[in-house]
Amino acid sequence: MADHTVTSEVVFRIRRFDPTTDADPHWEDYRFPCPPGMTVLEGLKQIKESLSPTLAWRSSCRMGVCGSCGMFINGRPRLACNTQVSELESSLITVAPLPNFNIIRDLVPDLTPMFKAHAEMQPYIIRDDTREQQQPTGEYWQSPHQLEQYLQFSYCIKCGCCMAACPTCATDPVYAGPMPLSQAHRYSSDSRDGGFAARKQVLSGERGPWRCHFAGECSRVCPKGVDPARAIQLMKRQLVVDYLKLGKQKCPASIAKVPDGVKRREGIPEAPPRTI
């Protein structure tokens, strides 16, 4: 695979498992010519079209946005659509389902436990002003610096690569895992949110960040640069500060109201009509 500009033979070694006929997963090899620029996902499609029509996997957007095609490719959890065959620097491509999740079939992992943990973290803005939430009268204040505190973590596409890489997830189903924890921190570190106390009910216990020992794998494999390890360490700091009562109580951001009795400067167009 030295020259990436010509078509060359590759072997896809795929972990196959059909629950209706197989007791255990097994490896199967598929050999075909790989044109330059082919992704692993396109390779799988090629196999399904011409070599093995029963091959099953999950994918959708084919451009690293939907988070469906997380797979264990050449010893690392990656997105199949985001991985060029040529970047693997090998003519043998091994593709297995994401570890630490049950296998439903072939390359399809069961992500349900991860999404259940995600839901437990209450991944949404929690505030007391129910009326304002239902009938908004304005935006909440947020400075660019406050935005930066959580923006990185909001890029998560829930592909499960971090969960497959995490050493604690390799044995412990109780630990919530990097994705749910980083998403809990995404909301806890949002200046508009007041839900830290509600999330603490889960985070201070066994499902919380305490089983993270900073092996750093989640951040290394994340295809979106979300850096779950950073979120989890910052979350631990927040929880320790809370336990030692060192921090100040923070109020969630207030509404940015249009000031009364101020004349609008000329030449500035009116805001578009409200959509909500």
């Binding site: 570890p99 630490n100 079939r105 390799a170 189903p173």
Partner: peptide
């Protein structure tokens, strides 16, 4: 939650990693 499919956790050997894992994994 009720588990579907075949279990595929790496087990204790997943703690050790190896191969393509990083420096901090070994320190861990």
């Amino acid at each position: 939650i009720e588990n579907k499919g075949r279990p595929n956790r790496l087990g204790v050997k997943g703690w050790l990693g190896g191969g393509r894992w990083g420096f901090e994994r070994y320190l861990y």
